[in-house]
Design a protein around this nucleic acid. Structure first.
Length: 499
RNA sequence: CGGGGCGUAGCGUAGCCCGGUAUCGCGCCUGCUUUGGGAGCAGGAGGUCGCCGGUUCGAAUCCGGCCGCCCCGACCA
């Protein structure tokens, strides 16, 4: 393998990351391990999320949970185990999920009378409970969310992107009408987009999935699709209008204003720790991770520099004073900044720089004896590498501005990359094949609506229709013909190879 | 599950073809000197060579079987 031959040069120098250009997938794996986001576990296909990675997840949870609450949702928790019979109650659902379910057959040393499925998703058990709690239209809507782990028996796994167990949130709602459920489905898709762009600085395209990519048991599935730096698509979040399929399967019905019995309309929507993989592949560079200020567990690291013992004591003391002041949660009069002081002794400053750059910390403040004398430090941005002096007095007011600027710049840079690797002009199917075999892209093209065409393209190029994009993402001049068959186009769609 | 690759110290590896009790780098520990971009010197700890069996006076090395992991496919948030 060429890439490995190339790596041989670095065999004794494990300080260098494999570059993205050399081998993107190797770069990703190394980066996740080296930046201490996660590690492989003793169980095949499962991962350990380490504190740095879990810290990002906690910040994701906090932001999303606030958004869910702000849109009227409440949290609850449903069991990990689901009676096997529940899965079978919705035909399409069981067909979609049964092959990837882990099933408990024994408990307390005895064979179970009814086997228990470890949830791959919780529609069945949640709607069975909703059915108990809903009698009247006055009981609706139910707007629930749960933070949980789920298990899917995957053939091939990758850290964060596809593991057998993963952490996620799943929203489950019940409504009186189709339109209200549809509105909820779209609203939550919008919440996801807002989170991904606003917090992750990861631009996404929203749109509807084709039937072949629709959630098993849903009427319609919508998704947020992000483009990674290898030009492949990552489905970062989904929102489903489930129609009445589960309501009928679990007898989730109510009496409406007219006194008639009616089935409820459900939605479900979820995002997972997979987003952390998306974060890595959106912003990481050959030096390591780059984390957006809103999600990074540490926003600024202070590296004290000294020669003598006196200087060591003085710079560390100053560093800690600054960290305390900026990070003090008892001071509501200013925005709290998450600061870490790297006062490790016996580790040289340069080594500390690499350490924190690998881990993606957005800002570094260097404080040495010269800086102490001038009451200022050197501030370095991880995203742009820009370096400039800053007065200690100015930190409190300037840092929030700089952090916001970094957040904005990261989104803008990612947007520019996505646009640069999107193809909106009409291309031939032959050209399309070349692109998918080569650099890859998001290709906007006409599609005749035939699933057979979709299957054929997947077979021939491994590319799939990521979505039928929402209006704001469509091309100014819509395609009129199908890229593959030349027949009249039914939709403009986005083709790409996906994770 | 199909194809490819790999299992030797915490990590990365040499040795294997051609059998004689394991090499080097990183990391770790101790001491001294160091600290504005990955520190230096000295000393030290750490090994069922993936597992089981076979051949042999002797196996990391040869033979058979098994297990695990990674990569590429099929499947998928």
């Amino acid at each position: 393998m060429g890439f490995l031959d190339d790596r041989d040069r670095h065999m004794s120098d494990d300080k260098k990351l494999t570059t993205r250009a050399e081998n993107f997938s190797e770069w990703y794996n190394e980066l996740v391990l080296r930046s201490e986001l996660a590690d492989y576990s003793p169980v095949r296909g499962c991962m350990v999320i380490r504190p740095h990675g879990y810290g990002i997840w906690e910040r994701m949870q906090r932001a999303l949970d606030d958004m869910f609450k702000a849109t009227g949702h409440v949290n609850a928790y449903f069991p990990l185990f689901i009676p096997e019979s529940f899965l079978s109650k919705e035909a399409e659902h069981v067909e979609g999920f049964a092959p990837e379910c882990a099933v408990v057959t024994m408990g307390g040393g005895k064979v179970l009378e009814e086997r228990l499925v470890v949830r791959p998703t919780s529609e069945t058990i949640i709607y069975s409970m909703f059915a108990k709690w809903v009698q009247s239209y006055r009981d609706l809507p139910l707007l629930y969310n749960q933070w949980a782990n789920v298990v899917r028996w995957e053939m091939r796994t990758r850290l964060f992107l596809r593991t057998m167990e993963f952490l996620w949130q799943e929203g489950h709602t019940a409504h009186t009408t189709h339109d209200e459920a549809e509105e909820e489905t779209r609203r939550m898709l919008g919440v996801y987009r807002e989170f991904m762009e606003g917090h992750m600085a990861m631009p996404v395209i929203t749109g509807q999935k084709t039937d072949s990519e629709r959630f098993a048991g849903a009427l319609r599935t919508y998704s947020c699709e992000a483009m990674m730096q290898d030009n492949r698509a990552l489905q970062a979040g989904t929102s489903h209008n489930l129609g009445q399929n589960f309501a009928k399967a679990f007898d989730l019905s109510f009496q409406n204003e007219q006194g008639e019995q009616a089935f409820a309309w459900n939605t479900s929507w979820g995002v997972s720790t997979r987003m952390i993989g998306g974060l890595v592949m959106t912003h990481g560079d050959d030096a390591g991770l780059r984390l957006p200020p809103r999600l990074t567990p540490i926003q600024m690291v202070i590296v004290p520099i000294w020669k003598t013992d006196d200087e060591r004591d003085a710079t560390i003391a100053m560093a800690k004073r600054i960290a305390d002041e900026l990070g003090n949660f008892k001071r509501p009069d200013h925005e709290r900044i998450r600061v870490h002081v790297d006062d490790r002794q016996g580790v040289k400053p340069g080594s500390k720089y690499y350490h924190w750059e690998t881990r993606g910390i957005p800002l570094r403040l260097e404080i040495g004896p010269r800086d102490l004398a001038s009451s200022s430090g050197m501030l370095v941005r991880r995203d742009s590498r820009e370096k400039r002096p800053i007065a200690f007095d100015a930190l409190r007011t300037e840092l929030p501005v700089i952090l916001d600027q970094i957040q904005d710049d990261m989104l803008a840079a990612a947007r520019a990359r996505v646009e640069a690797n999107s193809i909106r002009e009409r291309i031939s199917y032959d050209r399309f094949k070349e692109i998918m075999a080569g650099p890859g892209a998001f290709v906007y093209a006409g599609w005749n609506g035939d699933p057979a065409v979709e299957a054929r393209v997947k077979e021939e190029t491994k590319a799939t229709i990521r979505c039928i994009p929402d209006p704001e993402f469509r091309s100014p001049v819509p395609p009129t013909t199908c890229m593959v068959t030349g027949e009249p186009a039914k939709h403009e769609v986005i083709w790409a190879r996906a994770y």
